[in-house]
């Protein structure tokens, strides 16, 4: 257990010690979104699903922060350790492959949740969030962060260069998140065929919608469907990460 906790501590200290590069920028980024889209533009949009626009967009922004940061930490940490060769420290230790994968994933969960909480605090300064189903909010945050830390772990193992990680972010994560209804409801895009279809087909729509329901009490998406999707994704991605560690994918010759 000491070995597992040591690796987990390493993964956490990695972003804590470098907080100006790892925690501050994504938090400030999202606060700017809040100010520009929420306060400046949102005042002209009126109510969406029975809440003000700034309230409407907050759950999506919080989840977006959790997703991105949970993904980045394991992806960059693992790739850099492969790049520098010091992944051999863990591989030549008595840690099991499952322990290695889980410690790296939990490091990502910690960063995702930390940034999520900071964004939530900023959101509470700017607007009121009712926390309609607080337990669900917590379970959502955890399951989404586990799922995307798992994805980060897989990408950190599979990437052949630094650009590989950015490619996944730019071509997969960003489109899925931004077309998942962070800034708009399905009602708002009705009639815009391309956006409406992409949004309806996007599983993130149900995850973000469900989280919005848990936080605000709005009902456009079923909170349980989103949760099942997030949990399912989490289980699959974590299992896949462990499997890749066990077979030594890009770790062993």
């Amino acid at each position: 257990m000491i070995g597992f906790l040591t690796l987990l501590k390493r993964e956490v200290m990695r972003f804590i010690k470098d907080a100006l590069d790892t925690i501050a920028p994504p938090t400030v980024d999202v606060i700017l979104y809040m100010l520009i889209f929420g306060l400046a533009l949102g005042a002209r949009l009126g109510e969406v699903q029975g809440v003000s626009y700034i309230q409407f967009m907050m759950p999506g922004l919080i989840l977006m922060s959790i997703i991105r940061n949970s993904f980045y930490n394991p992806a960059y940490s693992l790739f850099q350790s492969r790049w520098d060769g010091n992944i051999a420290d863990a591989l030549s230790s008595p840690l099991s492959y499952t322990q290695m994968a889980l410690a790296i994933i939990l490091g990502g969960v910690a960063r995702g949740l930390l940034v999520g909480v900071l964004v939530l605090i900023a959101a509470l300064v700017l607007t009121n969030l009712p926390f309609a189903h607080p337990i669900l909010v917590l379970v959502y945050g955890l399951s989404v962060s586990i799922a995307f830390a798992g994805l980060g772990c897989i990408v950190g193992l599979c990437a052949k260069n630094w650009e590989g990680i950015n490619t996944v972010n730019v071509f997969l994560l960003d489109p899925l998140v931004l077309l998942g209804g962070v800034f708009y409801s399905l009602e708002m895009v009705r009639g815009i065929a391309v956006i409406e279809s992409l949004t309806r087909l996007n599983p993130f729509t149900y995850i973000i919608g469900g989280f919005r329901g848990a936080l605000l009490g709005t009902t456009e998406a079923d909170a349980i469907i989103g949760l099942i999707l997030a949990l399912g994704l989490g289980v699959v991605l974590v299992m896949l990460s462990i499997l890749l560690f066990r077979v030594g994918y890009h770790l062993k010759a």
């Binding site: 040591t6 350790s81 060769g85 010091n86």
Partner: peptide, 29 residues
């Protein structure tokens, strides 16, 4: 084991921390 190349966790650890983390991976308190 010592590797041919300098395999040292230089991302954010100092010399003493490198040794302490290494021992931690092996279950040393």
């Amino acid at each position: 084991i010592t590797f041919q190349e300098f395999v040292l966790d230089a991302q954010f650890l100092n010399v003493r921390e490198i040794l302490i983390y290494q021992a931690g991976y092996f279950g040393v308190s």
